[in-house]
Design a protein around this nucleic acid. Sequence first.
DNA 1: CATTGTAAAGGACAAATGTCCACAACTTTA
DNA 2: TAAAGTTGTGGACATTTGTCCTTTACAATG
Lengths: 186, 186
Amino acid sequence: MIRVNKGFLDYVTTLKNADKHSAITEQEAGVGKKIVTEKTTVFSVYVVKEGLAKCYLTEDTGNDFIQEFFGAGEVFGELEMFTQDFSFCTIEALTPIKYYKIPKKVFLALIENDAKFNSLVLRLMASKIRYTALRHSYHQSHALEVNLKRLLKEFPDLLQKISKKDIANYLGVTLRSLNRAIKILG
Amino acid sequence: MIRVNKGFLDYVTTLKNADKHSAITEQEAGVGKKIVTEKTTVFSVYVVKEGLAKCYLTEDTGNDFIQEFFGAGEVFGELEMFTQDFSFCTIEALTPIKYYKIPKKVFLALIENDAKFNSLVLRLMASKIRYTALRHSYHQSHALEVNLKRLLKEFPDLLQKISKKDIANYLGVTLRSLNRAIKILG
DNA sequence: CATTGTAAAGGACAAATGTCCACAACTTTA
DNA sequence: TAAAGTTGTGGACATTTGTCCTTTACAATG
């Protein structure tokens, strides 16, 4: 749901601070700003420093499918450095956001020369695979009500932080269905 | 659906053949054999040499959720080398299968010392993330019939190769629903 | 403060999917 | 080959979710 990765954020912060002229820069974006756009070439890897973003795909049906919500330390754009593909999702700020930007060349050099960095990236990608698999499996085999209850247990202030439409898109249902489920849960 | 990775298979084959006493061994498994079991410690990384396996999770509801079907070159057990977690899924042979087994120590040594190998693993994990995301997004926003048609277009002999129950579990529907969709498609 | 506009919630019906069970097809065994 | 068991398929109904549209709540404006 809302993913974070303190360890990686700390490491990148250290890297940046170690060099006054670091190629790693800090950037900001306002609500609604798309930091990465679907089907577009990606030139950098990004790390959320603070704030919240959503990672989603828009289908040909017009539906948005929210992959994940990214909080502090979450990384995006890294896949495209390895697969040479266009971005497969859009990253959009849900709150004002601060993030680090690591140019492609710098990122790939770190992968090659900094074993610790390389290892953190491997771990982070492994986590994404695991987490996503567990989530989709759970979603598919449980009723909407159960899924919602589970989310609310982990993030009690969910409905305050994230719009219902976004929650519905994350759960893969319509807003109408989500409203029904909310009503039933009381 | 049925994932393959010729490049990785070739590389591992070369690695193994380069050393007569290689720690990479070749193994076989018969139909139904579970090569890796959910919630269990994993001590090796595996690469399918030939045959077909399914990668699935069993939910508390008793439902199996099939993550992917693995063909030649597909890798499993690698995530657990990085996350230190138990296996989150079961890998079971659907046909007689041959595979390479790379002990954890050897795998991690390759990651550290063989840049090409490291790069192949990064790419393979990036592909898994991308592929899974695209698949789930598509599944969620299209009708069962459309999803099935799409699968059959890519794998015309699907119904011959893989049991209906497994296909249903992959699509996240019941066998009943799958049968209905098949009937409608003619 | 009334009026108009806009966004959120919910009612009513339609469509899709699940559950349960019966029946058919096919295997095994006596 | 008949009987019994096993597996696969489909009918009938229940439940869930989607679609469409009305109603409600709230905000903006004259």
